[in-house]
Computed example of a mutant assay.
Amino acid sequence: MDICCWNVRGAASSKFKSNVLDLIRTHRLDMLFLCEPRISGEKAISVVKTLGFPCFEIVDAVGFSGGLWLLWDDSRVHVEVVGTSDQTISACVARNGQDPWLFTGVYASPNAGKRGKMWDYLSFVAASHNMPWLIAGDFNELLAADEKFGGVLECKSKGFRNWVDDNEMIDLGYSGPKFTWNNKRVYARLDRAICNMQWRRLFPEANV
Rank of each mutant, 00 (worst) to 15 (best):
residue 61 A to D: 06
residue 97 G to H: 04
residue 81 V to N: 05
residue 75 S to I: 03
residue 88 T to K: 08
residue 78 H to A: 12
residue 82 V to Q: 06
residue 62 V to H: 15
residue 101 W to S: 01
residue 78 H to E: 13
residue 84 T to G: 04
residue 96 N to K: 14
residue 68 L to C: 02
residue 90 S to T: 10
residue 80 E to D: 14
residue 70 L to F: 06
residue 92 C to W: 09
residue 68 L to N: 02
residue 64 F to A: 15
residue 64 F to Y: 15
residue 82 V to Y: 03
residue 69 W to R: 09
residue 89 I to S: 05
residue 94 A to W: 10
residue 64 F to R: 15
residue 99 D to S: 14
residue 71 L to K: 03
residue 73 D to N: 15
residue 95 R to A: 12
residue 67 G to R: 00
residue 70 L to N: 03
residue 84 T to L: 03
residue 68 L to D: 00
residue 68 L to H: 03
residue 67 G to D: 06
residue 99 D to E: 11
residue 77 V to S: 02
residue 71 L to Q: 03
residue 96 N to E: 13
residue 72 W to V: 06
residue 74 D to Q: 08
residue 91 A to H: 01
residue 101 W to Y: 09
residue 72 W to C: 04
residue 66 G to A: 14
residue 80 E to W: 11
residue 94 A to V: 09
residue 80 E to K: 15
residue 71 L to W: 02
residue 81 V to G: 07
residue 87 Q to S: 05
residue 65 S to G: 10
residue 83 G to N: 07
residue 81 V to R: 05
residue 82 V to C: 11
residue 75 S to Y: 08
residue 78 H to T: 12
residue 79 V to M: 06
residue 94 A to Q: 14
residue 83 G to D: 08
residue 89 I to M: 07
residue 84 T to D: 08
residue 65 S to R: 15
residue 71 L to P: 04
residue 79 V to Y: 07
residue 100 P to W: 06
residue 91 A to V: 05
residue 88 T to H: 11
residue 66 G to E: 06
residue 95 R to M: 11
residue 84 T to V: 13
residue 68 L to R: 07
residue 90 S to E: 07
residue 77 V to N: 02
residue 82 V to M: 10
residue 78 H to I: 08
residue 74 D to T: 00
residue 95 R to Y: 09
residue 95 R to V: 09
residue 95 R to Q: 11
residue 79 V to C: 12
residue 61 A to T: 09
residue 72 W to D: 02
residue 94 A to L: 06
residue 98 Q to P: 01
residue 100 P to L: 09
residue 87 Q to V: 07
residue 98 Q to C: 12
residue 70 L to D: 04
residue 84 T to C: 14
residue 74 D to R: 08
residue 68 L to K: 08
residue 66 G to T: 11
residue 82 V to H: 01
residue 96 N to S: 15
residue 87 Q to H: 04
residue 72 W to T: 01
residue 69 W to H: 10
residue 81 V to E: 02
residue 66 G to W: 02
residue 65 S to W: 13
residue 87 Q to G: 04
residue 61 A to P: 09
residue 68 L to V: 04
residue 86 D to P: 11
residue 62 V to N: 14
residue 75 S to P: 04
residue 66 G to P: 05
residue 63 G to N: 12
residue 71 L to F: 04
residue 78 H to W: 09
residue 94 A to E: 14
residue 64 F to C: 14
residue 86 D to G: 09
residue 75 S to F: 09
residue 94 A to Y: 07
residue 66 G to M: 08
residue 70 L to G: 03
residue 79 V to K: 06
residue 63 G to Y: 10
residue 66 G to I: 07
residue 70 L to T: 02
residue 90 S to G: 11
residue 87 Q to W: 04
residue 74 D to N: 12
residue 62 V to A: 15
residue 82 V to A: 02
residue 94 A to S: 15
residue 77 V to H: 00
residue 98 Q to H: 11
